[in-house]
Design a binder for these strands. Structure first.
Lengths: 281, 281
DNA sequence: GTTTTTATAATGGACAGACCATTGATGCAT
DNA sequence: ATGCATCAATGGTCTGTCCATTATAAAAAC
């Protein structure tokens, strides 16, 4: 806890930086270090406590945290602070909140989408370049293909073939969103074949972000996309690792060039922008 | 906005599921779909608005959002709701909050640590196995080594050599945390040499989590670790890609076996555990 | 005139107390 | 048994208040 714990004495404990009686002053004097200017906020400390119990195994998926009110009382903080902490953990995919009687905060197993989300954010905010993103995707897919060749199972292989069939019948209607979904599924199946959840998540993240760009850039449909995918699946099926890697890499590099060109032209067209200080509409 | 916007009419707008006058009822009748049972919470809608403006480029790093009070008024919601939204965005690394006059919520460039954080959470919560984690690390490092061989610059190479020197003088004192830091730095330098931020983040994430496990498992110090690293750096310096990849892979696989063995013995010792319903201490 | 000090206002951080909506359980009536 | 009404637990939200921190402006000191 490290806080007062007296629960009723929840007054005047916000800043803790100045005007403190004896105990705290002594505690601060015992650390002549200068480093941590950063005053931790209440909700952060709560989050850390939960994460600690998670790492040591005291808290496991399915466990329930005490209700907000109770937790607030136990920690000697306001319910709002507890809520902000729970909000953080929820956003982090660590807990899920359920309303109603018998509701509460339950420990989850984490959320793979978060990896995608955070990488996407960094991409949108300019910390990650399209060039780096597509390159990384090309490289990671080489790994995925390699493992997939070794480990793919008949059912997944069949699903891949079905997926390509589905794609082959799609261009007639020509919906971009459907192509998106089908392609995403294709890569997801390959990543599943690797039998490695970490690789799956990485592939998923990179694929989704790049594909989103493909849709936005309105890239013309590759006429030989179906043929490419068929070859790829065939190579995987017959365990021709090097052929499969080459097929995949060539395709992704071609897509990469397309995207980079699209980005260049897009940058040229809208060279100006509204100045912002956004009040959100 | 999609909400009332009248700002003063912030009453009775919590549930929105029942007891709505005319306009909303008509809007709902126009969508005979059944899907979205999930009633979105206020703060989620606020987050989405911000993210939308981010993706379209209306909000860019450095821009400032309106102060909490103003934002609450504009959106016709309470300040607490706005705070929860900002909290979410802050946790997501999208905004940073600054106190004081001229403070506020500023758009950031995202936080690479989030990738590490989310993967770590999933690992701790059992969604990712140590086996998958170490395998992925082995594979990804192959990519990193490959790119590093091609792209490393003299300064980074020198830093790598210095890092190994530092490591060679460390075992005398024998602090585990220092070994951790030095090793983490070693891998960070290699990943930096790839000149690919995405790969950097992935390597950083996997390395940190695995290294943390190494510390906890109290693995005995590899007596030939320094020799291994020297060889590796030498291979990178002389662009012997295959040798470097082999050197790296062999080391990581050996470490992997050690960790897996440690995990097995740890599981055997503590087969029981406290039943939880954790009240956090 | 310049520097230092002191107020002031803006803004995030935290708290208290309240009300509503949802949900599961419990008991009553059919 | 089945269905319905009631109730209590719990998250979601609102309102209002106060505190701590910070930059800027005003005032005082030099």
């Amino acid at each position: 806890m490290s806080r007062k714990t007296t629960a009723t004495a929840a007054k005047s404990r916000t800043g803790k930086g100045a005007r403190q009686p004896a105990a705290d002053a002594a505690k601060e004097r015992s650390q002549p270090q200068f480093a941590p200017i950063r005053t931790k906020r209440v909700f952060e400390e709560i989050c850390e406590q939960v994460r600690r119990e998670m790492a040591t195994g005291s808290l496991r998926p399915g466990d329930k945290l005490p209700p907000e009110r109770e937790l607030a009382a136990k920690l000697g903080v306001s319910r709002a602070a507890v809520r902000e902490a729970l909000r953080s953990l929820e956003i982090a995919g660590v807990v899920g909140l359920q309303k109603g009687a018998r509701g509460g905060a339950f420990i989850l197993k984490g959320d793979p989408d978060l990896v995608t989300q955070s990488i996407r954010d960094m991409f949108h905010l300019g910390r990650i370049s399209l060039d780096n993103l597509t390159e990384a995707r090309t490289l990671v897919m080489q790994l995925a293909i390699q493992l997939a060749c070794e480990r793919i199972r008949p059912t997944t292989l069949a699903a891949l073939e079905r997926n390509v069939d589905q794609l082959s019948m799609l261009p007639a209607t020509g919906k971009a969103s459907e192509r998106f979904a089908t392609s995403a599924e294709f890569y997801r199946l390959i990543s599943q074949a690797t039998d490695n959840t970490v690789l799956q998540m990485i592939v998923e993240a990179l694929t989704e972000i790049v594909l989103q760009q493909v849709v936005q850039a309105n890239i013309e449909f590759f006429p030989n996309l179906v043929a490419h995918r068929r070859r790829l699946v065939e190579y995987i099926a017959s365990d021709r690792v090097e052929d499969a890697k080459r097929e995949m890499t060539e395709h992704l590099q071609r897509l990469r060039r397309h995207l980079m060109r699209a980005e260049r032209t897009a940058a040229e067209s809208k060279s100006t922008r509204t100045p912002a200080e956004a009040t959100s509409r």
